[in-house]
C-alpha cells in the first residue's frame, strides 16, 4: 500500500505548536496553595483534567496549572491555557474561554477573537488559535474545550464539570 499524502486539515490540527504543548505540557502540576480546583471529564473518551488555580484577593490569577491524561489536543489546550492566563484577571479568563470556544467551533477567526480581548492578549490569541484546527473535526472540539470548562468551573467554585453539558 502506498501512503497517500497527508491531508491539510490533519496538518492544521496537529501543527507544531500543538504537538509541542501536547508532548511537553507546561504547568503540568498542582498549584501550591491553590484557591480553587475542578475536574473536567469527557465521558465519551474517559479523559480527565484537573485544573488548579490561585486567585489573589483582587481577582488576579497568580498561577494556573493542570494535571490529567488526555489526547494531544486536550493536553495542548490545557498547557496553552495555563500560560495564557498566568497574571491575568479572572474576567480575562472568561473572555478567553469564549474566544477559544468560538474559535474551535468555527464561529470566529483569530482576528475576530483579538477584537474581543485586550490588545496585550494578541500573542495569546495567536497561539490559542492553533486549536481552531478542530473545527474540521467536530468530535474533537470537546477535547480542545475540556480544560477551559474545568477552568471556569474552578473559578466558579464548582468541583466537577463534564463536556456533556
Amino acid at each position: 500500500m502506498i501512503a497517500a499524502p497527508l491531508t491539510d486539515d490533519l496538518r492544521t490540527l496537529y501543527q507544531e505548536v500543538i504537538l509541542d504543548h501536547g508532548k511537553h505540557p507546561r504547568n503540568l502540576r498542582i498549584v501550591e496553595h491553590h484557591t480553587c480546583k475542578a475536574q473536567g471529564n469527557n465521558p465519551m473518551c474517559g479523559d480527565r483534567v484537573t485544573v488548579t488555580a490561585r486567585v489573589s484577593p483582587d481577582g488576579v490569577l497568580e498561577d494556573v496549572a493542570f494535571e490529567g491524561k488526555g489526547c494531544a489536543i486536550s493536553i495542548a489546550s490545557a498547557s496553552m491555557m495555563s500560560e495564557a492566563l498566568a497574571g491575568q484577571k479572572v474576567a480575562v479568563a472568561h473572555q478567553l474561554f469564549t474566544a477559544v470556544h468560538d474559535l474551535c467551533v468555527g464561529k470566529i477567526d483569530a482576528d475576530q477573537a483579538k477584537a474581543t480581548v485586550a490588545a496585550d492578549l494578541g500573542d495569546s490569541i495567536d497561539k490559542l488559535a492553533s486549536l481552531s484546527g478542530v473545527r474540521q473535526f467536530p468530535v474533537r472540539v470537546k477535547c480542545a474545550t475540556l480544560p477551559w470548562h474545568a477552568l471556569i468551573s474552578c473559578l466558579d467554585g464548582k468541583p466537577q464539570t463534564t463536556t456533556e453539558k
Binding site: 497527508l6 473518551c45 488526555g70 494531544a72 489536543i73 477535547c143
Partner: peptide, 19 residues
C-alpha cells in the same frame, strides 16, 4: 493518544474505536 490515532486513521478511511 488513541483519540489522536483514531482521528488520523479516519482520514485514511480506517474506522477504529478509541477510548
Amino acid at each position: 493518544h488513541p483519540h489522536d490515532l483514531a482521528t488520523v486513521l479516519d482520514r485514511s478511511g480506517v474506522c477504529v474505536r478509541a477510548g
